[in-house]
């Protein structure tokens, strides 16, 4: 996974409640066996009408937001299906950071594992950032835990240490866990005695 340190980029305003993962990537585009190439289907029903024409109401695809790498979103972003394709699609569309009042749990976990930084901020601060998302660049600094708006105003955000470290280091989580292999084996040996019917 690619580490996340700092990011300076255009922020796209996309404030809607309960944006579900079917909206981020419709199920018909989950039939892939790879992780790449999903960007063109990302937010498909938001971006295109039934005839495949770009919708005027969509913030995506047109300057300045076609260069967007930060998404400013609404509450409960990423609810619904567990599909990690939603994260892959967002990243393939160019996004590396989403800022919202809240995120759904499974989406939150999926994002971290792919190096997509999710920042939770109070509603009031989100509304301020939305007003400033007019095409000039924002800077997100994970180490400092700050978002700098184009007008220079800096807002701090919270992130827990474990997730921050993994994002900064781009760490392979399976590799990390396997350092505890002995503990896993000990657990299994003990469990086999207690619940033998769970082991073939």
């Amino acid at each position: 996974m690619e580490p996340f340190t700092t990011l300076t980029a255009v922020a796209t305003p996309f404030y809607r409640s309960n944006v579900d993962t079917d909206v981020i990537i419709p199920a018909e585009h989950l039939k892939t066996i790879s992780r790449t190439g999903l960007g063109r289907y990302c937010f498909k029903t938001v971006r295109y009408d039934e005839n495949g024409n770009l919708r005027n109401s969509s913030p995506f695809d047109r300057p300045p937001y076609d260069k967007g790498k930060v998404l400013i979103a609404g509450p409960n972003f990423g609810c619904g299906s567990s599909r990690e394709h939603a994260v892959w699609a967002l990243m393939d569309l160019g996004y590396r950071c989403v800022i919202a009042p809240s995120f759904a749990d499974i989406f939150f976990g999926n994002a971290i594992k792919n190096g997509l930084l999710l920042i939770t901020m109070p509603e009031k601060e989100i509304q301020e950032l939305l007003k400033k998302a007019t095409g000039r660049e924002f800077t997100v600094d994970l180490e400092a835990q700050t978002v700098k708006a184009p007008d220079g105003k800096v807002t701090e955000f919270e992130i827990d240490a474990f997730r921050k470290e993994r994002l900064l280091g781009g760490l392979d989580e399976i590799g990390l866990t396997l350092q505890d292999e002995k503990a896993i084996t000990v657990f299994e040996e003990r469990d086999k005695m207690a619940r033998p019917w769970l082991y073939a």
């Binding site: 567990s82 999926n110 396997l178």
Partner: peptide, 19 residues
């Protein structure tokens, strides 16, 4: 019982554990 993403599916396959 809970739903997980594909990276976690791989993690469980390899380690039989999950954070």
């Amino acid at each position: 019982a809970f739903g997980i993403g594909t990276s976690e599916v791989e993690h469980v396959m390899a380690t039989q554990t999950l954070v």
